[in-house]
Design a protein around this nucleic acid. Structure first.
Lengths: 228, 228
DNA sequence: AAAAATAAATGATAAATGTCATAATTAGGA
DNA sequence: TCCTAATTATGACATTTATCATTTATTTTT
């Protein structure tokens, strides 16, 4: 079994402040999981008894609306952690984490996390900073959802997806989403998302290669996202 | 000057877990402020060097959009605290806190807060829980802004305002907001908010007495907020 | 109390977005 | 590989929401 103290993923998240001893303890107790595409790592409303550290693969964090529609709140990739909010606040998980592709994930039991929180103030602080940053992003999101038209939100989302996932060897945004998932991210009907994507393609701002999306004119997208 | 250990406001927030000694230290260093209606307690982007504890009065937390429009993210009342996110995350303030009426506010310097965070794990934990809860609410908000029509969001907002502020002796929601502020909460044009309020009145669901709003049929509002 | 400024209300219209229907394309399973 | 189901795409139309213009009411200032 792999060792936490040698894992490169810890460079990217709050775990980077842990001591060698703490990482060794994590190694001893952690379990590695394979999550298949479409499966949930966590489910809204369930309680959780540990922290997930994403080794590889991408997932979406979603919320089911009262009308049954899915809202995508955030995207997660290798190096990110999941479940710390629930551990710290001692509340059930607030969002579904659903794999967009097969994933490799490490699960570290709650006890070990709480131990490190108690012993290592810098670790706690990093977890708090992570949650604070999420809150800050969420507030920005509220504002944009409430006040920007769908077209602007789509442009914003495409830029943000490229920011998060980068591009593949053909310069396409390196994540595969259905049109419905894009619509559920920006909060619109699937048909509207499809239509607006087609328009952006017609205007030469993006290219559509099946589900893959390539940004051709980042500045134009930025302008659209700001309402110009 | 008033004394923190005797202040009833501390019952309602994370400060309730502080020891007598800690509260005495706060008392020695705190300053009391009067914030006039329309003035800011905190301003988006500014840094902050302490925590505000609201004694009395109401304020709105807002964000200025790129298009210059104000989005109201949250309402704050007596007993709430402000600024802890910024202190914990060591980042500038993310939102404007603007008084909706004259307010009495206590300011406790950052140093004292950090001291208590270090000494009193339960205090830290309560601050974290507060931020986590805000994040949870924010995620719900994103989903509703993205997917619910304006009418549903207005109904939701009216229920939530009554929840937060209660009612006065005439059963009206106990906060005075302009129609524009209501519009900026639900993310719509002022005229649309006015029109929808008029419709709700015509349907006997609410009553409008100047700026005061009285909920006549809470169940009907709840149904509307869920799309029925 | 009168005047001026601001806010609320309402109608007319335009623009944005959703819904439904249907065709074309793609992906996945037998 | 073929067949089926799902996804993507597009048109026609309905509904929602924004914008602009104007009137009425309320608040603030003089």
């Amino acid at each position: 079994m792999s060792n936490c103290s040698q894992c490169i993923m810890k460079r990217f998240n709050a775990l980077k402040t842990l001591t060698h001893d703490e990482l060794e303890r994590f190694s001893d107790h952690k379990t590695s999981l394979i999550i298949k595409k479409g499966e949930n790592i966590m489910t809204e409303g369930n309680s959780i008894n540990g922290l997930y550290c994403i080794q590889d693969g991408k997932c979406k964090l979603t919320k089911l609306n009262t009308n049954g529609k899915e809202q995508i709140i955030k995207f997660i990739k290798g190096g990110d952690i999941l479940g710390h909010r629930s551990i710290l606040s001692e509340e059930p998980v607030g969002l579904n984490a659903t794999a967009l592709e097969d994933m490799r994930v490490c699960f570290i039991p709650k006890g070990d996390i709480l131990e490190s929180i108690k012993d290592n103030p810098q670790f706690s602080l990093n977890l708090i900073k992570n949650i604070s940053l999420q809150l800050s992003h969420a507030n920005t999101s509220i504002s944009q959802m409430a006040q920007k038209p769908v077209k602007d939100r789509l442009a914003e989302t495409l830029l943000s997806l490229e920011e998060i996932f980068g591009v593949d060897n053909e310069d396409c945004i390196d994540v595969i989403l259905t049109r419905e998932e894009i619509a559920n991210t920006i909060g619109t009907a699937t048909e509207s998302a499809i239509r607006l994507l087609s328009n952006l393609k017609k205007d030469g701002v993006i290219d559509l290669l099946g589900k893959k999306i390539k940004i051709l004119n980042k500045n134009a997208l930025k302008n659209i996202s700001e309402g110009y």
